[in-house]
Amino acid sequence: MAHRSGPSGFLLTTYDTAVNWTRTRSMWTATFGLACCAIEMMATGAAHNDLARFGMEVFRASPRQADLMIVAGRVSQKMAPVLRQVYDQMSEPKWVISMGACASTGGMFNNYALVQGVDEVVPVDVYVPGCPPGPQSLMHGILTLQDKVMSGEITR
């Protein structure tokens, strides 16, 4: 993040970079476990994979305390309004990761019951492929999101 280091212990950077850096380091997650992917999301937070390394092991049950919504699983037509409401309750800045094939595109269930891609309901920043994506994939998605936020690609 440091653009220039001054001679006597000063650290100079732009305001934007500093803000982005603070945003990426403590991205709290709203639990939005829906289906299979939610179990992998739990596994990501648990012992073997340890999401705490990235400063985001805090899964918040209340959307008002969360910055990031990981839509983990298939979104049904009945669930879509609920999802949107949870998204609206989150405070800005907020990001969305669409985890898994079903959340991203409807997956293999191209039928009457499912929303074919959660991006019909909320804006999505990162899509994580897989059915379900393993913990490594999810972590890669999260790091990608952090990179995007850091580089200023996503501005809110």
């Binding site: 595109t105 409807g106 039928n111 009457y112």
Partner: peptide, 13 residues
């Protein structure tokens, strides 16, 4: 929806 004269409701990809 599970009636046979009800379409699967798939969206063309």
């Amino acid at each position: 929806p599970l009636r046979k004269d009800y379409a699967v409701g798939s969206v063309p990809v």
